[in-house]
Design a protein around this nucleic acid. Sequence first.
DNA 1: CAGACACTTATTGTATGCAATCGGTGTCTG
DNA 2: CAGACACCGATTGCATACAATAAGTGTCTG
Lengths: 225, 225
Amino acid sequence: MKKKMSLRQKVYTSLKQDIISGKFKAGTRLTENFIADSLNVSRTPVREALQKLTQEKLLTAIPKAGYLVEDLSDSDIKDLFESRMQIERIAFQNAVGHITLDELKTLDDNLEKTKAAIKSKDNFKVTELDIEFHEIIYKAARSKTLFRVCKNLSDLTVKYRHRLNLVSGLSNESLKHHVTIYQAILAKDNMKISQALELHSQQAVLHLFDIMKKLRSDAFHQEDF
Amino acid sequence: MKKKMSLRQKVYTSLKQDIISGKFKAGTRLTENFIADSLNVSRTPVREALQKLTQEKLLTAIPKAGYLVEDLSDSDIKDLFESRMQIERIAFQNAVGHITLDELKTLDDNLEKTKAAIKSKDNFKVTELDIEFHEIIYKAARSKTLFRVCKNLSDLTVKYRHRLNLVSGLSNESLKHHVTIYQAILAKDNMKISQALELHSQQAVLHLFDIMKKLRSDAFHQEDF
DNA sequence: CAGACACTTATTGTATGCAATCGGTGTCTG
DNA sequence: CAGACACCGATTGCATACAATAAGTGTCTG
């Protein structure tokens, strides 16, 4: 199955994974040749993958100097998470009217799986299930456009949400929010959905401010030589 | 100034223009070689431009058969315009709190210019001013994320909005909606903004259903030989 | 020593050729 | 005549070579 993927897509997936997982830290500079050499492919597919990631805002293109993996500023993180929340609110409220019993069951399963993943400290799995939880609801909104927009914003936040999950206790907090959201959808209570989403987002941003502050200071000290 | 643009960007701009203006009708099949030859460039920049447009959903890639300029189905048009409206509502309501007198003046100017453009039957100018009207408000929302999302959805609708403007009388109707929206923003009346936006969007969709029906039947009769 | 200037080098931008793949077409066979 | 099969052409996918450009570097000069 994997063999049928184009090189461009393989490179794209590989780079995206490395950016999201934090393997490429903020400030990492990537050049076409460097990536082409390390993945043993020509520049062509690499170039196309980089352009795609740049369009998705996961990379920044620096003319004649390659591509940069950047972290957002605090205010940009706040903007991103708040906007995402506002748009998710629309999708979630649309979802209330359309979601099926099957989909609700899938959500419930997701919560159980997340609980297990947290217990076994499988952080990647936790992030993956986090993405899935939101995506199930996006789908239930029954709108191609909203799905696409939400998915795109989700991608932009994944890197940061993953970092949250690396901090002990925070995945549990996030899970509790998911449970509340799930119950609110079950109860078809738009107000409660809205409030739970807001809390989920606000808490994420607050915790991220701390995490980013620490990250930046670490990076600063590493540069001291 | 134009000389400094990369070929990729020139090709991209040119193709986008042709798609939006309707020069490439739905069903038009584009191949890398065809475009490369007609613009006298190599396949490389063409390829990259096509990929970008595909990512923006302005084109559909058909494996081993090129790229297709497609029109959305009625239900997809409805979904697109409704979702755009819902997200614009957020941006517009955020804008109320931040918009400056200067920006309001620019909006007012825009309405005047539109009136003139309609009178002189400059359809492209009307569409351009339509885009600008919305964009001014996106900016006033003071959110990079919302701006990006709204702009993207705007791009997806431009082709259809332009078609509306080609029908006599409809640009006038649209202008009236803009005036109402402008007044609602001036009055900081969120409810009125919301209603005006909804009407603006709903009317567009209704008119588009007619237009698309006619377009499809024309296309059908043309195929009869 | 400071500033400008030329040179080198790293990097992206573009062209081109070849490989792989898929669809269509025509032919062969039962 | 129908169905399978092989071949051909069109198209994208990828690799590679070359061009253009800009940034950095070292040197020369006042």
